[in-house]
Simulated scan of single mutants.
Amino acid sequence: MNSFVKASLIAAMMTAPLMADESFGGVGITIYQVAEGVHVAEVIPGTPAAESNLRAGDVITAVDGVSLKGQNIEFSKAQLRGQVNKPLEITYTSNGETYSTVVRRAQITVKDLDNKAVKNWYGDKERVNAQELETFASATENDKQLVAVLSRGNLIKNDVSVASADVNGVYVEKAKTTPKFTKTTPVRTGDASLRLFNRKAVSFALKSPGRATVTILSADGEQIATLSLDNAVAGVNTINWNGSQIPSGRYVISIDHNGAVSGANAVLK
């Protein structure tokens, strides 16, 4: 990674600026801006992003349907941050495929760590067991749990020698009950495309005939309805359904056609 990209990464950290304490609602990634959106540099363990299928190297192209293409880093960070525990839909590319996943923001705190904290976190693993580390993490930030340590924007994964001034701890607030971080299976853009979604019908276009199954998921990943059409035709197909009692909001429409899954995001008014 060249010095320009390193500088951009440090300046654009999703978790926090390097030498500043900060607390916000976020998903737990470090990013830098690229032409198509934001490049995921690190996925922080113990955060909502780690519960999803996001991986380092993926490029986030949109958040809640808002494109990040051609934007600056402050705009992109503003879309990813927001109200704690509120679900958001992330569209991203990975290995040439486009995916969508829904996660909930958590309360994330980033603050400098001193040498003692680093020693406890990265102590002698033969003598410091997991329970002791968990006790240390719980005690260091009251109701927040230390989930990772960053050095100049990079996740420290193994025992290393670092100066305390270069180290930030990432904490995630502990909820009274275990937060539900949705592990929505990403949907791939395939040969099916959504044409219409309302409370009475779902219409979609297929490039070839065959059995089609439409699954409607809420923003939380809850399955709302499953609709099947055994003899779908090449072209536009419509399946009637009763969505009169379904709340308004954002939904994920998954279309399984001849074993290949496609997907789209839609709003029910």
Rank of each mutant, 00 (worst) to 15 (best):
A260D: 11
A62T: 04
T30A: 09
T93R: 08
R127S: 11
T213V: 15
A16R: 02
A78R: 12
L146N: 02
N120Q: 15
V267A: 14
L268Q: 02
Y122L: 15
S23T: 15
N85K: 10
S164C: 05
A41M: 10
R104S: 14
G263Q: 03
Q223Y: 06
S138D: 15
V40F: 07
I90P: 00
L18P: 03
S151P: 00
A20H: 11
F24K: 14
G96H: 02
D58S: 10
H39A: 03
M14V: 06
V147T: 06
M1G: 15
L196A: 04
V252P: 00
M14I: 10
V252Y: 04
G249V: 00
N115F: 09
I156Q: 13
A201W: 10
K125T: 12
A130R: 13
N142Y: 12
E51R: 09
E89T: 13
T101K: 00
P186Y: 03
G82L: 11
V43T: 07
P45W: 11
V27R: 00
N237M: 03
K176M: 13
F181N: 03
I156V: 15
D58F: 05
E132Q: 14
V236R: 09
V43M: 09
A62H: 10
F4P: 00
V103L: 12
G65H: 11
G243N: 08
Q223C: 04
G70A: 05
S94F: 10
T61W: 01
F204M: 02
G221Q: 08
L88C: 12
L146H: 04
A225L: 08
Q33D: 12
A78L: 05
P186Q: 02
N265M: 09
V84H: 05
N115C: 02
T30Q: 11
I31A: 07
A139E: 14
S94M: 09
D112N: 14
T140C: 06
G26V: 11
V233A: 14
Q107N: 10
Q145A: 06
M1W: 05
V170G: 05
Y251N: 01
D166N: 10
P45K: 07
S244Q: 10
I60Q: 05
G96Y: 01
V167I: 13
K180G: 02
N85W: 01
N142F: 10
W121T: 15
V160D: 12
P45H: 13
G46L: 09
N85V: 01
A7G: 08
V147C: 04
E51P: 01
T184C: 05
E97H: 13
V202F: 02
T135K: 14
P186T: 03
A137E: 10
S100E: 08
D191P: 01
P45Y: 10
V118P: 01
N240Y: 11
T30C: 08
L227Q: 05
Q79F: 04
E89S: 14
G221W: 07
G46H: 06
A163E: 06
V162N: 11
I255G: 03
D191N: 11
R199E: 15
G235S: 04
S67Y: 01
Q79Y: 04
K174A: 07
V236M: 05
V167F: 03
I255S: 03
D256N: 12
